[in-house]
Amino acid sequence: MSKPSYSKGLVGVIAGESAICTVGTGQGLNYRGYNVNDLAEHSTFEEVSHLLLYGHLPNKRQLEQYIRRLANFRQLSTAMRAVLEQLPGSSHPMDIMRTAASVMGSFEPEDENPNNEKQRNNQWECGDRLIAIFGPALLYWYQYHKNGTKIETRTGPNDTVAQNFVKLLLQTDNPDPNMVRAVDVSLILYAEHDFAASTFGAIVTTSTLSDVYSSVCTAIGTLRGPLHGGANEAAYRLISQFKTPDEAEQGLLKLLKEKKIVMGFGHRVYRKGDPRSPIVRDWARKLSEIINTPYAKNLYAVAERMEQVMMREKKMFTNLDFYASIVYHFCHIPTDFFTPVFVIARTSGWVSHIIEQRQDNKLMRPISIYTGPDPAKTPYVPIDKRLERSKL
């Protein structure tokens, strides 16, 4: 019998319907119909989060209320602070994010509705609380273990997620507005991307009728991998290896000759360029000019040369992660915080898909093509007759 065909990595497999996002369908990247370029230019992350979670862009009054709502959720509970203080300072920041979600799920669980599996009474609030708490939790842990400081995580009542994050990170009440806006735009660009690996992971967990927090923990674990969320960290570590554009060109040519993966280039879905990349590239260039130091200008020049070489040699374009890593570095965000910032943004998309999955749920249960021993030729061997064997 011929071996059944399948799609390795589920490439091209349609796993469901969604009204949330279009990716690479000829219409670019759109959130609920709105083009990401327009959102990045004219909106804030709070507007985009509201759009994804609640289905529409807020008006001015709704936006003001939503910003204050998120601000009110930033106060860490005594239990959360105690857990963050007990976690080792050497922990991976993504472990902090996953733990924060678990703590929230334990002390402020989702309100189950036994009469309606399609909707839980406070599923939207759970999403808002996670979006609001992730940055403060990460930075409370960071400042406590780095400086021995127990910081107040609520800043101004009208502060955006980006403002709050930069203020807590840099411990200043007056952060550079350009840095705040750059972070804000990055959150918009990272907020949603259809059935990406982490989102699909959250959907699989949701399909079992699990709670929001469990689904988000699944997503965080998936995002941690270097082929998904960790790609921005890997991209910066690659870029920062090179001291000059010429050195970067020679280094890239060597990597290509050795057939090594070059992080920050290409995309699983996009074939003609990542529509988010030009937006974040402009911000990387703008920040390099604002900072206006030889180091900043050279770092941007190195990244730019790498982009040129990859396009010339492999016809590969940069993805969002490549220049986002430069933007985050210019905003003084530690490299191992790049993916946690991704978490803050993508939580809006994850919870939107969790809510959507519940509306027409079907347990995810694919099948595999078995490639193991033939059961007909594999008789059971009693323990006293089994030979010592090496590991597989």
Rank of each mutant, 00 (worst) to 15 (best):
S7P: 01
G9K: 05
G9R: 09
G16V: 02
E17F: 12
S18I: 10
T22C: 04
V23C: 01
G24I: 04
T25L: 13
G28V: 07
N30H: 13
R32H: 07
G33M: 08
Y34K: 13
V36S: 08
D38F: 09
L39D: 01
A40C: 07
T44V: 03
E46V: 08
S49W: 00
L51Q: 04
L52R: 04
L53Y: 06
Y54A: 13
Y54G: 07
L57P: 09
R69I: 04
N72H: 13
M80S: 06
Q86G: 14
S90Y: 02
M97V: 15
T99H: 00
M104W: 04
F107A: 10
F107Q: 14
D111M: 15
E112D: 09
E112N: 08
N113Y: 06
N115T: 08
Q119L: 15
R120T: 13
R120M: 09
R120C: 08
R120P: 00
N121P: 00
N122F: 06
C126S: 11
D128Q: 10
L130E: 00
P136D: 05
P136Y: 01
Y140C: 02
K146G: 02
T149D: 12
R154Y: 06
T155H: 07
T172N: 11
V185F: 05
L187S: 01
H193F: 08
T199A: 11
V204K: 00
S214V: 09
T218N: 11
G221V: 04
T222W: 02
G230H: 03
G230R: 05
I239C: 02
K243A: 15
T244N: 11
E258N: 13
I261K: 15
M263R: 08
R271N: 14
P275E: 10
I279W: 05
V280E: 04
D282P: 05
S288T: 03
T293N: 09
P294V: 08
A296C: 07
A296Q: 06
A303I: 07
E307S: 12
R312P: 02
E313H: 14
K315R: 15
T318N: 12
F322V: 12
F330M: 11
H332W: 05
F338L: 12
P340L: 09
F342N: 07
V343Q: 04
V343N: 14
I344M: 13
V351A: 05
H353M: 08
E356W: 02
Q357L: 06
N361D: 13
L363E: 06
P366N: 11
S368C: 12
S368G: 13
S368I: 09
I369R: 11
G372W: 03
P375N: 09
K377M: 12
T378Y: 07
P379D: 05
Y380F: 15
V381A: 05
I383H: 12
K385V: 07
L387C: 07
L392P: 00
